[in-house]
Amino acid sequence: MPAVSNNGIIFKAIPEGIPQPDVHFELIHRTIDIENLKLGKNDFILRNLYLSLDPYIRTTLREPHSESFLPPQRIGHVISGLGVSEVIKSNDHNHKVGDLVYGFIGWEEYTHIKTDENRINSVPFKNINYHKKLLPEIPLSIQHSAFQLSGLTAYGSLMALGKPKAGETIYISSAAGATGQLVGQIAKIKGMKVIGSTGSDEKVDYLLNELKFDAAFNYKKVDLDKTLSKLCPNGIDIYFENVGGETLEVVLNHCNRLARIPVCGMISQYNITNPNEKYGVKNLELIFHKSICVHGFLMSDFYGTQTEKDFEKDMLEWVKSGKIVCKENITMGIENVVKGFIDMLVGNSVGKSIVKISDY
């Protein structure tokens, strides 16, 4: 078997502000000789199928000494991110040839997982072989979008932290994104009044006419304070936080007593590299005045919990029955990963952004 293409995306330089394709990333052309590649103990090789493009990746494009929940990407190395892959060669009894796995992989066509490397994708892989049984009824891309990062993030945070109750009001910022679209639909299933904001009229139309939100608006065209007063006359019981900054400040004024705020992200602050330029929320005292619960979380917090078991059961039922719609923005090919990533980061995509690397 001859060597095959293994093109990948290298991290060239740390960005200040929005990353630029030719400045901070580089497409490199390589090959990999899978047949003759010697594997160390517990090593394995993945054929990458789908890459997940998510806002958290921007937080890893940073200085090596700075702290975050994930280690920084390394200059001169292939960028890592979450994705779905097939094991094609293995010296690890936990990951056999033919297994489908989910975890941190390279932005490349094939990834050689080496257990002796201290790298971001040393996080354990999750075997997802049961997903094969759902094909072709539920395509693997939809399974990737609904049943992995975005799905568990949405379900776990809303159910375990938001504790939705029928008749309550939820407001979701960045509501047409990968996680927001699922949070809104789950909240509707639970009988909530669902309000969402997003950054384009196209996305507003998606929220209203496809996802059946009770109300949605383009935050770029309205006064947020006045709009929330109009759409949430009885206040906000759950605020699903994706944006941060001034939006959080305004929303706190509209939160009811005992409101819950699951903090999924603060994307408005990710491209601000100077700490002095970040927005300082001025009314945090409302958190104790109103007994508001603000709860940050990571998807991994739900691994191995009853919440994860409930999620797998409920999401499968909802997707099969059509109660959950998962809109995808699919970029084709490793050479287009950077464009897809930046489009997602600046809000040019609707729904879950993924890259299809290879057929399955």
Rank of each mutant, 00 (worst) to 15 (best):
L51E: 03
K320I: 04
R62H: 07
G177P: 09
K96I: 06
D343Y: 05
Y360E: 14
G40K: 15
G351S: 11
A216H: 01
K320R: 15
V251I: 14
K41D: 15
E317I: 05
I195W: 07
N348H: 13
I105V: 15
D343Q: 13
T305Q: 10
G235F: 07
P164D: 03
A146N: 02
S68K: 02
G196W: 10
S300K: 07
F11W: 02
N234C: 08
I45C: 08
G340L: 03
K313V: 10
G340M: 08
P164V: 05
Y110H: 12
K193Q: 07
I334D: 11
G351M: 00
K282P: 13
S52G: 13
N253W: 08
D225G: 07
F341R: 00
Y279T: 10
E26A: 13
L258D: 14
I334T: 15
P262Y: 02
M315A: 11
I287K: 05
F213W: 00
L248V: 02
G17Q: 12
K320A: 12
E241P: 11
W107D: 01
V101L: 09
D314E: 15
T307C: 06
Y50K: 00
K339R: 08
I334E: 09
K278W: 02
K96F: 03
P124W: 15
Y110W: 05
W318Y: 12
A176V: 05
T247S: 14
D301N: 15
K126C: 09
E285T: 09
K327C: 00
A178R: 10
V4W: 06
E67Q: 14
K165Y: 10
K313L: 10
K320H: 12
A175M: 01
D201I: 10
I334Q: 13
K290M: 01
I138C: 03
S353A: 15
S90T: 15
H254S: 11
M192W: 03
G81L: 15
K133Y: 07
T169I: 12
T31V: 13
K282D: 10
E202D: 15
E241G: 03
K290P: 00
D116W: 08
H95E: 04
D343G: 00
D22L: 07
H77F: 07
D92V: 12
L224C: 04
D223G: 05
V97P: 10
I324W: 09
L345W: 01
G191W: 02
D214M: 04
N276S: 12
V251L: 03
D343W: 02
D43T: 11
L158I: 06
L70A: 13
Y155M: 05
